[in-house]
Design a protein around this nucleic acid. Structure first.
Length: 431
DNA sequence: TCTGGGGTCCTAGGACCC
DNA sequence: TCTGGGGTCCTAGGACCC
C-alpha cells in the first residue's frame, strides 16, 4: 500500500509562506530567464494560465497587475522541500522522495491510515505552511491518481464527491464507487499517459481511466508498449513499480542554460561551457561517480523563425573516467571549439556527463598514481571551500577568462530573498 | 522583443561481428 | 538468375515525468 504526499502549487505555496499578502491572489512562478509559468496558484489557473505558457503572452492578455509574477527561487524551494519531506516521512515506515514536491510513503501495516494521513497533512500545513494532497492506494500509479482526485475535489467541486478532497484513500472505497471515480477521470490524468498516448488511446475508444484499467495487458503491450502494459496492470492493482528508498545513482548529469540574450561569440560560449562543466562536475562528485564521456551542445532559438538555425552536439571521450573539473572542462571546451560556427544567434548551450560509473572503480595509469591522488584531494578542497563560502569562490580558469561582462547570464527580475538559507536575507518580523 | 532544466526509459535502425 | 541468420552495441529520437 502506498501514499503519495504532494505539495499543492508547490513553488507558489513556498513564496506565500513568507509573503502572506499573496494568499488568495493569482500568482505565477516563472522559469529561468523569467520565460514560462512553471507554477500557478489556483487563482492563476482559474484565469486560464496554462503550465509552460510564456510570460509575455500572459502579460499581454491580462490587465496590468492582475497577476503577480515571481522569478524562480530554487534555493528556497529546495529547503522548504526538505522540511516538508521530513514531516511526510511520519506517515509510514518507508519513504521515496520522488520529486521536489512529492514523496511516496510505504504505508503497509499502518493502522487507520486515512486518519493518520489527515493528521500528517495538518501538521505540514501548520509547521511548514504548505498545503498538501494525499492519495492512498495499492499501487504507485493508483496512489498518484488518488492524489489527483484529492486535489481536484478541493479545487473544482463537481467532478468528485467532496469527501474525496485533501486525503483520498482509494483502497477504502467500495468497488462500485471506485469504478464511478475511475470513469469520471480522463485517461490523460493517469501517470505515464501523456498527450501523445492519450490521443492514441482516445482514437481506440479509450477515453476514461476505467476503460484503460479494463484493458487486456497483452493488448496494451501489442498496441503500445511495455510501459503502457505496466500502467494498465498498476491500475488493476498489481504493483509493477517498487518503492525506491535510496535514490539510485544518476546515469547522466546535465548542466544547461538558455541565455538571457542571443550569444554570438566563441569566447562567451567557452566561458559558459566552462561554468556548465564545472557545475556538472560538482554534481558528479557529490554522487561519487566518474564520467567517461562529455557531451557539449549549442543551438539557436527555434522560436526566432527569422534567424538562421543551427544545432549541434559532440561527445568527447575522456582518456579514463574521471571527476576532475579541469579535465572535464577541457573536454567540454574542446567540444565547443569544434562545433561552434560564426554568424548565429545562439540561445542555449549545455554540458552533459555520460557513461557514469562508480568512483571506486579506478583505472590507474603508470606513474600517475600520486598525481591522481593529489587531484582528488584538490577537488575535495575546492568543493569544501565553495560549499562554505558560496559557489564560484574557487573556480577553474579556462579559455576566455571570465571577464566582468558575462553576456550569457540569465534574467531574473522578480526573485524573492533566500529567506531560509542565507543569514543576510532572513525575513524581519516586526511587532 | 520576450518561450526552463534535468532526468528516465524505450524503440528503431545502423554498424559490426561471426 | 538466385546473395543468411543471429547477435551485440551504439546512437538518435520519441515520449514521458516533475
Amino acid at each position: 500500500m502506498y501514499a503519495l504526499v504532494d505539495g499543492n502549487n508547490f513553488y507558489v505555496s513556498c513564496e506565500r509562506v513568507f509573503r502572506p499578502s499573496l494568499m488568495g491572489r493569482p500568482v505565477v512562478v516563472l522559469s529561468n530567464n523569467d520565460g514560462c509559468a512553471i507554477a500557478r496558484s489556483n487563482e492563476a489557473k482559474a484565469l486560464g494560465i496554462r503550465m509552460g505558457t510564456p510570460w509575455f503572452e500572459v502579460r499581454d492578455k491580462l490587465a496590468p497587475g492582475s497577476v503577480v509574477a515571481l522569478s524562480a527561487n530554487f534555493g528556497l524551494y529546495g529547503d522548504m522541500s526538505n522540511r516538508m519531506m521530513s514531516l511526510a516521512a511520519g506517515l509510514g515506515p518507508e519513504q521515496e522522495i520522488y520529486s521536489i514536491d512529492e514523496s511516496f510513503i510505504g504505508v503497509a501495516g499502518v493502522r487507520d491510515v486515512t486518519a493518520r494521513a489527515f493528521q500528517v497533512r495538518e501538521r505540514i500545513l501548520q509547521w511548514i505552511g504548505i498545503p498538501c494532497g494525499i492519495g492512498i492506494a495499492p499501487t504507485k500509479t493508483l496512489a498518484k491518481l488518488a492524489n489527483h482526485i484529492a486535489k481536484t475535489a478541493d479545487r473544482s467541486p463537481g467532478t468528485y464527491a467532496p469527501d474525496l478532497g485533501r486525503v483520498c484513500n482509494l483502497a477504502a472505497l467500495p468497488a462500485s464507487d471506485l469504478d464511478t471515480v475511475l470513469a469520471a477521470t480522463a485517461v490523460d490524468k493517469v501517470w505515464g499517459i501523456g498527450p501523445r498516448l492519450s490521443q492514441q488511446l482516445n482514437g481506440a475508444g479509450i477515453v476514461n481511466t476505467l476503460q484503460l484499467a479494463q484493458m487486456d495487458p497483452a493488448v496494451a503491450r501489442r498496441g503500445w508498449s511495455v510501459t503502457v502494459e505496466r500502467t494498465v496492470r498498476e491500475l488493476q492493482g498489481t504493483s509493477c513499480a517498487a518503492l525506491e528508498e535510496v535514490a539510485p545513482r544518476k546515469k547522466e548529469i546535465a548542466s544547461t542554460r538558455s541565455f538571457g540574450r542571443p550569444v554570438t561569440s566563441l569566447d562567451d560560449l567557452l566561458e559558459a561551457v566552462t561554468e556548465f562543466a564545472s557545475r556538472a562536475a560538482v554534481k558528479l562528485r557529490s554522487q561519487d561517480s566518474h564520467a567517461g564521456q562529455v557531451l557539449t551542445f549549442v543551438h539557436t532559438s527555434p522560436f526566432r523563425r527569422q534567424d538562421k538555425q543551427y544545432s549541434r552536439s559532440i561527445v568527447v571521450p575522456l582518456r579514463r573516467p574521471t571527476a576532475d573539473t579541469s579535465l572535464i572542462v577541457r573536454a567540454a571546451v574542446m567540444g565547443m571549439r569544434d562545433i561552434f560556427r560564426q554568424g548565429y544567434n545562439m540561445s542555449k548551450a549545455g554540458v552533459m556527463l555520460l557513461d557514469l560509473q562508480d568512483a571506486s572503480i579506478e583505472q590507474h595509469e603508470l606513474d600517475l598514481g600520486v598525481a591522481q591522488e593529489n587531484r582528488t584531494k584538490l577537488m575535495a578542497a575546492m568543493d569544501t571551500i565553495n560549499d562554505k563560502h558560496g559557489r564560484g569562490t574557487v573556480a577553474v580558469a579556462s579559455a576566455g577568462t571570465a571577464g566582468p561582462r558575462r553576456r550569457w547570464v540569465m534574467k531574473q527580475q522578480w526573485k524573492t530573498p533566500d529567506y531560509t538559507t542565507s543569514w543576510e536575507q532572513l525575513p524581519l518580523a516586526r511587532a
